Amino acid sequence: MRHKRAMQGAFSSLWRNDRKTASSANRQSRRQAIDVYRGLAILAMVAYHATWDLNFYRIIEVGIGVDALWFALQRAILTAFLLLVGAGLWLAHKDGIDWRSYWKRQAILVAAALGVSVVTWFQFGEYFAYFGVLHAIALSSLLALPLVRAPLWAPIGTAIVFLFLPAVFASALFNTRWLAWIGFFTAVPETADLVPMFPWFGVVLLGLIGMRLFEAAPIFTWSSSSPWARVLARLGRWSLIIYLVHQPLLFAAITPLANWLDQMPVDKFTSFTMSCEASCSEGNDAAYCRRYCSCALDITIRDNLWDAAADEVERMTRLCTEMAR
């Protein structure tokens, strides 16, 4: 009996020490360099969305919805965030998993993702963000956890599959909302935001693998006491809050400006926009028509709908009507 109690006490002590080790490691896993990179990414995202909003209201005209360079920039910002997710998972859990901290973070991510879905449902109706970037980060953080301390070939092999399988396989079966989040769709789903697991979970794993291999490299270990580094690091630590509030704040600032400029002359409308706004103006205010026609122009150019069939025009009309409200 004494031997059994001694064994139980030893296991209990070992479990407590493991939790303390994991908790201590997680507290020390935050690095200023990673926070600075995350701060730079969040600033780039805010700048991109501000430009998108200004273009959406036709205060500026930069082709952000149709230009390949802007599309590449949007993908680069998303890639940076997901790489940092993977890097952060390695730093937080390489020496042991603090389950309490992990599940707390997961709960916050899931709640934030559901909040985005609800808000965009009210804003865009059926085009709401049912699997956006926060949904992808939450699920990726769950799927990547077993690979954090697995043999290196496991995350590398999984990353290769997720990154390259969409290039060789696609099916119309995945065009539905219930399966589009996987990533094998043949037509881009109509939604406010979609970050499918294929290939983007592979990007998260690249961040995990890169940090695992090059953790001691100067690019990840530097620190600075300069004001800019401290500011960027603070922005990086609050990136989730900034992500959630920046668009409402941008719209709150840009909408009054757009209304004030409503009567200002515009000298660069294309014939498409002029025709669209002329037909839209019957029964709708000018600000709504400007937003609607900007959306219609972007989709028409992106999907080459100049000679579109009636059903394609109807689908575009429904989407832009929701986006312009």
Rank of each mutant, 00 (worst) to 15 (best):
R318Y: 08
R177H: 04
I64P: 14
Q8A: 15
L152K: 11
A296R: 11
G157W: 09
L91G: 03
C276W: 11
D98E: 08
I301T: 15
I209P: 03
Y243W: 03
W178L: 12
Q74M: 09
L297R: 13
E215M: 15
R100C: 09
T51D: 07
A310C: 02
S23D: 15
G88W: 00
L134Y: 01
S225C: 07
D298G: 12
R325D: 14
M1C: 11
I241G: 06
L147H: 04
S24D: 15
C280N: 04
W181F: 15
A253D: 10
L206S: 10
A286K: 11
S101A: 15
S239F: 09
L179Y: 01
L297A: 14
K268D: 14
A41H: 08
S12Q: 15
T158S: 08
V168Y: 12
I97G: 13
E322L: 04
Y243L: 03
S223W: 00
A44M: 08
N175W: 00
G183Q: 00
A144G: 05
M316T: 02
G63M: 00
V203A: 02
R291L: 01
A107P: 07
A278G: 12
V231A: 14
R27P: 02
S275A: 09
D307N: 14
A296S: 11
R30Y: 08
M45S: 06
L240N: 05
A6S: 13
A92Q: 10
A87S: 12
Y130I: 00
W153M: 03
D298N: 13
L249E: 13
Y288K: 01
H49F: 01
L257W: 06
S224M: 04
G210Y: 01
Y102N: 11
V168C: 07
A287K: 09
S275T: 10
S239Y: 10
A154K: 09
D18F: 05
V231T: 15
L297I: 01
A159D: 12
Q123L: 15
K94E: 03
Q32L: 02
G202L: 06
A233W: 11
A22H: 08
T300Q: 07
Q74L: 11
H49M: 03
E282W: 02
S275I: 06
D53V: 00
Y243A: 06
